Every structure is written in C-alpha cells, then in structure tokens.
Simulated scan of single mutants.
Amino acid sequence: MSINLELPEKLNSTVERSRLAAEHIFRPISRKYDLAEHEYPAELDELGKLAKAARANERAEGKSETDAAESTVNGANLRSVLNARELSWGDVGLMLSIPGQGLGNAAIAAVANDEQLERFADVWAAMAITEPGIGSDSAAVTTTATADGDDYVINGEKIFVTAGSRADHVVVWATLDKAKGRAAIKSFVVPMDTEGVSVERLEHKLGIKSSDTAVVRFTDARVPAENLLGSPEIDVKKGFGGVMQTFDNTRPVVAAMAVGVGRAALEEMRRMIEESGHPIDYDKPVAIQHAAVADFIRLESDWEASWLLTLRAAWMADNKTPNSLEASMSKAKAGRTVTELTNKAVEIGASDGYAETGLVEKWARDSKILDIFEGTQQIQQLIIARRVLGKSSADLK
C-alpha cells in the first residue's frame, strides 16, 4: 500500500476556508467563551450555514470521486481531518460547537446506508456512548432498545454527551439483548425532540468550556426502526464490529483536533524560545543546544508523526481499507503528544504561559480531553496490542 502525501488540490478550498474561520472567527472569541461556560457561541451560526452549503455542494459533485491517476479515493474522512486540524488551531471547543458537525455525524457517515445518509445529511448529531459506572468499556452499555412493532423503545442514561444540549439529533448506543453481550449493541439516530428524551444537566469541565457536555436521559423514547444504523441482526460471531466502525472514523478526527491544538502550541513555543535569544537550529546537534530548543525539536517530531499517522488512518477509511489499528495509533500518538506539548509550552512560558493574558494555559486544559474521549490512551494501547499480537478482547484485557 502506498500513499501520496501531497494533498489533492480539490481539498485546498477546505483547508483555506477552515484556516480563515480559525483565525478570524475562533481566535478572537476563544477566551470569551472559555470564561462564559455553557453560553452558546452565536458567532458560529453563520459558519454553520456555510458548512451546510459546502456539504450540499460536495454531495452534488460527488465528494468521494476516484483520482484516476492513482486509483485512490480522497473523500469525506480526509476532508474531515483537514477541517478538524485547521479549526482546532483556532479553538477546539468552538470547533466542536459548529452546528451540523457533531461527532454523531461521523458515526452516521461510518455505518449508515445510502437512504440514511440522504435522510440525515443535514442533521446536527451528538453521540451518546458513555454511561455512569462503565468507564471506558463501551461493551458494557446498559441502555436498552426494545423492539415494539415498527419502532424501538429506548431507556437509559448517557453522560459526557458532547453538544448534547445543542444538537438536534443524537446517536445512541443501546443493547437489543443484554444476554447476548456486545454483539447486541447497536446505534440509533434519535431526534432530540423525541418524547422521553431529556437533558438532565450540563457538566462543568477543565477544558473545551465553549462546548456543552450534557447528561441525557431516555425514558421510553420511541424511534422508528429505520433509525437503527447498520444491521438489526445480532451476529454473535461478528461481535462488536458494527458499531465499533464508528471509532474507525471518529478517532482520526480527534487525532486531527490534537494536531491542530499542538500546532498552535508549537508556534507559541517557537516564538517564546526565539524571543528569549535561543534560535532553533536544525543543523546543530540537539545535545549542544539550549534545553528548551531540544524539547521543541523532540516534540515537533512527535507532532509530525501524529499528523502522518492521522493522514494514513483517514486515507484508509476513504479507501474502504480496515483501519482499526491505524485509527487507534493516530489517536494514541496525537493524544499523548498534544498533552505533553501544551504542558511544555506552559512550562517554557513560565508566568506568561500560566496566565490568562494568552491562550497557552487554555490549550493545556483543552488538550487533556483529546487524550480521553473516543477512547483513553490506555484503551488505545490495548487495542493496538490486540491487533499487533493477534489477540482477542477475551485474551488481552
């Protein structure tokens, strides 16, 4: 398998549009909504409309066309990671708050059939997986979906639902039959105005304060059977594979968010180091340069590796190549790198890095969630080990 790392020209407009939004919309209001937690960023409404129009144009033009010269596809996944990287450089919490670009939208793109893709094309979908007491074990879902005629009736509680109070739909993971284990877990697209769906509270958080994080309860919430994503059949041999495809799409996007925040911190680190009289010289051995320069060069190389892993995972998803290993590798590397990088920026900045006069301390707080949601660092390493060693979840826990 070979990958041309030159980005296709057709994606230049995505990068440019996102970069302008990050610089001229996100950065100027970044601190404002960090301090005004739970206040809706009304400045994003127009951006949401533009994003919706762009998606409509992409569908009309056929956004996943084949590049004839290389017989590869550069489609929705590559576009998503480029968009996430650029916008997160501006503000990752605001990126998560753009109308119509929820994590649930990536879940729909991962497993929906053609009819569902068309029907849910313009929804804003949050994603509800985590529950009280189950930690990072997605297979321990206790929310139930009970078949009743042409509907499913959903009961349960979900926590840490990003955009849970703002999105108009939510993708819910629920079990059809607890006795059949993880194979019975399916995902459902549920309109937030469905009777029995309620937002119980909003969380106060360490970072990404401009993004709402909700507790959502489902009490006899009835949804049509055609809102189930993927097959309704419980295939014990296939196991958890159906809904887990969601993560193969969303983990590279989260990795790209980490790359975007990391780039912001790297740029500020470079400025602080060079203004203190220590130029970064790539021609000299690291060992004879200032300690801060050595840290910068090491972290910059880790950052580059994170981005290359992310590109690979997204490219594989676009080309219908199994990428569970690569998606977890990108998420693990990028999540670990961005937390180390932003904390080092605070350290090097000293009082300036710790104060609210700049954004360095905010990036350090924001970055931590990027190493946690969509699967913690420990979970990613476990998945990687299973794939590399050929072990099942039962063999390696």
Rank of each mutant, 00 (worst) to 15 (best):
T130W: 01
E374M: 14
E233I: 10
R387E: 13
F296N: 05
A69S: 11
E347I: 13
D34W: 13
A21N: 09
A264G: 05
S324V: 11
E61Y: 03
S2C: 04
G277K: 04
A128P: 08
A163V: 09
T376N: 14
D302W: 05
K284M: 14
A84E: 09
V259H: 01
A110S: 10
A110M: 03
K52Q: 13
A53W: 01
T14R: 07
F160W: 08
E275L: 09
I185V: 15
S97V: 11
R85H: 05
W307M: 04
A147W: 00
E274V: 13
E37V: 14
T72C: 09
E361T: 15
H38G: 02
N12E: 10
E70C: 06
K237R: 08
P99T: 11
V243N: 08
N4W: 00
I297V: 15
R19V: 11
T357F: 03
S306F: 00
Q245C: 06
D220C: 03
L176P: 06
R365A: 12
A110P: 04
A355P: 01
T310A: 06
V215D: 02
L82C: 10
L382W: 03
L117Y: 00
A394Q: 14
G358S: 07
R166C: 06
I383A: 05
T357N: 12
W315V: 14
A84R: 15
E267Q: 13
A214K: 03
R271Y: 05
D366L: 09
S198L: 04
I25P: 01
A174D: 10
S18T: 12
Y40N: 03
H290G: 08
A76I: 12
E16H: 07
E304C: 06
F120A: 10
I348L: 11
I185E: 04
S80Y: 00
I280A: 05
K52Y: 00
V253D: 00
G104N: 10
E356A: 10
E203C: 02
T143N: 07
A287E: 15
T321G: 00
L5R: 13
L389Q: 10
A287V: 14
V253C: 02
M329A: 12
A84N: 13
R336W: 01
T162Y: 02
I108F: 01
A163R: 13
A54I: 11
